[in-house]
Amino acid sequence: MAAEGRRPASRLALAAAFLSALWCVEPVNASAEELLSSGQPVKARTRSIDTFRIGTADTTFGKLTYLGGLELIAADRKVGGLSGLISLDGGNGFLAVTDNGHWVSGRIEQTVEGKPTGIADLRFAPMLGADGKTLDARWGHDTEALTLSGSGLYVTAETRNAIYRFPWPISTGKEQMIGEVALPQDIRDLPRNTGLEALAAGPEDGPLAGKLVAVAESVPSDLHDLSGFIIGPDGTERFTIRRHDRFDATDATFLPGGDMVLVERRFNLRDLIGLRLRRFNGADIVPGAVLEGELLLEADFNSQIDNMEALGVHTNENGETILTLVSDNNRSILQRALFLRFRLED
């Protein structure tokens, strides 16, 4: 792993740095109250979203049970554009990144069943490069996803096709980037605005331990499938995910059992808006694989969705797996920042 702006001294040095950062290190726990303590507080209100499918009271959608949702309406537009998320404290808190290079944290008020009822203690802070300058000032701010692995927090920057490493926890909001993950040239050369979008850390008790799994948002015109990358101390290996119906990848996370869930978004004039969730057996994510996955959820403009981009997962006190889906409103009055909660029944 190279420091910001530097080339790795050797392949051996790169592997050693990557291993020390990722390999079998338990993540440091952090509560919502510990995050962004020096960040800028933001006044916000929420609007409840009691039903997912418009016009019906259905809560069951295949293997997912809708628990409830919120529309976040913040007083500062810097809190808009939420593109990546990790759930903390059993779903009581979150840390997010925006697509213009800011951290956002907050506390999610919820019922015993996991239904979100409000968002409090909302704060934001600019993300800082290794030189202390904001990512916005360094033109590295198109941040789209984040994941926690070992003692590091990893963030993708789509336009630059880079993966940044930050210390964990982000307790003040003034923490500087530690460096960048060394990536091969074919990742660096992915098309702008369709590059690295989804990022997930391999489960610590499986074959992907100590590795990052990334998925490009879309595909070059001469390809059909989505490009996936397994990034580890011995280099980068590749797999593909079947692409259907003009859906693009926007985020990914691993479930407690080792499977990976991919968020797919469709947002164009031809199809209007769409959301798809697919689950992949973690054991199938290997070099050279072509993955189809299991369809968990598909929704369109008849459902309470927007530009869905972020996914967090946590396990509640009952051992149930809870998914939190978040939308990127692009800081536009025409779009919404949504927090949607589902319980995975299988």
Rank of each mutant, 00 (worst) to 15 (best):
N193T: 03
L275E: 11
V261Y: 07
S221E: 15
E197S: 06
V219F: 11
V215T: 11
E197L: 05
T253M: 09
D205A: 10
H244Y: 01
S227G: 11
L255N: 14
D251N: 12
A201Y: 01
G274M: 01
R238I: 02
V213G: 05
V263W: 08
P233L: 07
K211G: 05
D205Y: 04
L190M: 00
D259R: 10
D225A: 15
L255V: 11
R192H: 02
A283V: 07
F280M: 11
R242K: 09
I231K: 15
L272Q: 09
H224S: 13
D271T: 06
E197A: 05
L277Q: 09
G195Q: 09
L196G: 03
T250S: 08
G232R: 13
G257D: 14
R265I: 07
D234Q: 12
R243L: 01
R276D: 02
T250F: 04
L223S: 14
P220Q: 14
A200F: 00
G274T: 04
D225L: 13
L196E: 06
R192A: 05
V213D: 03
A209Y: 06
P256M: 15
P256D: 12
V215Q: 09
N193M: 02
M260T: 12
L212Y: 04
E237P: 02
I231S: 10
P256A: 13
N281D: 12
A252T: 13
L199H: 06
L208D: 10
F239W: 00
P256I: 12
